[in-house]
Design a protein around this nucleic acid. Structure first.
Length: 406
RNA sequence: GUGGGUGUAGCUCAGCUGGUUAGAGCGCCAGGUUGUGGUCCUGGAAGCCGGGGGUUCGAGUCCCCUCACCCACCCCA
């Protein structure tokens, strides 16, 4: 065998590409109709940009190398540092709130497995400069809107939401020390997936406090979470309450989030999170910008694709062309090409064989092209300035004057 | 980076305890059908049996190594 794609990297043959485009189209639609503007940044950034906030150990998961000028660089594994950098540079001149989105390709050097490769596309939606709960609810609504465009409803997906401030406060109320916090949060995050997580919590905190936490996971103590109640109220205003469930077990990455945190899962709970986001006030400032509140989410293509496949909702590739032009005999090759170009000029996507294969073969090609109609260019009709238009689904044919062809 | 499973045609897979020139279905190409596609029939192309080494008279089949893929862990920004 010759060359293959690198481990964790994907080839997009046309059928796969069609699915990717359909996802991207849904993402663009949902973003734009909610007033988000598209932006993008460099695929390659200085290594330091990514290690500054997340720590050096993150380098293990980066495609990092030295370029020819001996600069340490890395392929982007996420958008937030770039976004923060870009916003910081123009923060004073941009009207607030800043509502931006992008559909970048990311690279992470890690072991490929279900729902994760070394390269993927991820839709990112962010709001910078808004502290209202309405902003949190709106980005959730935008994420769900894209899923709805793709055919996923409240019976298919669920958005689980918690709040970092609330999590901290609850842990403090049972005297979990600051140094234990990240470890404890880590195990809470794992409760759903890891059978040993509950045991580990007991070992760390003792039976009494561990049970308290498990009770909160069973039934969210909403009466003690005013900030979450506010977000849930905003979710009702944005019409997404059917999708949203408060859940104590939603934690997410420890380095970033400061307020509401949420993830979207398939209802069956078989896959990784389809999307995840939250509020990260303070992060823009940490990247050297002004101290603006910020929030957003990411939705990757890999898990989403998997989910759509399981639900039988994987988008079908569109027909290659609308019309297939067929010369009926070799002397009709030139007239057929005239018809072809005429159609294309009018904005109709059309294709035709390069030569003049047997009619049966040409019709087979027409069939494979996905065209709804075939235009048969034959000597008899051509002499009258006409062609035959065949409906490929029904087989019906009718004679059409060239000038009436659309 | 750690552990387990699997590698045979473009795809899905057969190939019994080692035994001649490695098979099927789908797909692709051609013909049956010189102005009519989808169905059907016939034929064809396509495989260093993932790669390397070993055992053996003989390896797709057994052993070792390696690589890739899948699953789980780590991580999830």
């Amino acid at each position: 065998m010759g060359f293959k794609a690198l481990t964790g990297f994907r080839d997009f043959y046309p059928e796969k590409m069609a699915v990717r485009r359909a996802l991207e189209l849904a993402w663009h639609q949902a973003s734009r109709r909610a007033g988000f503007q598209e932006f993008d940044g460099p695929v390659l950034e200085s290594l330091e940009l990514f290690t500054a906030k997340s720590g050096e150990e993150i380098e293990r998961q980066l495609y990092a190398f030295s370029d020819k000028g001996d600069r340490r660089v890395a392929l982007r594994p996420e958008m937030t540092p770039t976004l923060a950098r870009m916003v910081a540079a123009r923060a004073n001149s941009l009207p607030k709130p800043i509502k931006w989105y992008c559909v970048p390709q990311f690279f992470r050097y890690e072991r490929p497995q279900r729902g994760r490769g070394r390269e993927f596309f991820q839709w990112n939606v962010d709001v910078i400069g808004a502290s209202e709960a309405a902003a949190d609810a709106e980005v959730m609504a935008v994420a769900l809107d894209a899923l709805r465009i793709l055919g996923l409803g409240e019976q298919d997906v669920v958005l689980r939401v918690s709040d970092r401030r609330f999590l901290r406060r609850m842990l403090r109320s049972i005297d979990v020390e600051e140094v234990q916090e990240s470890e404890v949060l880590g195990w809470i995050d794992k409760l759903e997936r890891d059978a040993t997580a509950a045991k580990r919590l007991e070992e760390i905190l003792g039976q009494k406090r561990a049970r308290e936490i498990l009770a909160w996971c069973e039934r969210m103590p909403l009466d003690q979470a005013p900030e979450l109640a506010e977000v849930l109220g905003a979710c009702r205003d944005y019409g997404i309450e059917a999708f949203v469930e408060p859940d104590f077990k939603i934690v997410r990455g420890l380095a970033y989030y400061t307020g509401p945190v949420w993830e979207i899962f398939d209802r069956a709970g078989e896959l990784r999170a389809v999307a995840g986001g939250g509020r990260y006030d303070g992060l823009i400032a940490e990247f050297g910008g002004p101290d603006l509140p910020a929030l957003g989410f990411g939705m990757g293509d890999v898990v989403l694709r998997e989910l759509l496949q399981r639900k039988g909702l994987e988008p079908e590739p569109a027909a290659r062309v609308e019309v297939f032009v067929v010369p009926v005999s070799p002397e009709m090759l030139k007239p057929a090409r005239e018809v072809l170009l005429r159609l294309r000029e009018r904005g109709v996507s059309a294709d035709a064989p390069y030569g003049s294969p047997k009619l049966s073969k040409a019709l087979k090609a027409a069939d494979l092209s996905g065209a709804r109609r075939a235009v048969l260019v034959g000597p008899d009709e051509w002499a009258e300035g006409a062609v035959r238009v065949k409906d490929l689904a029904s087989g019906d044919e009718r004679k059409v004057q060239l000038d009436d062809l659309d």
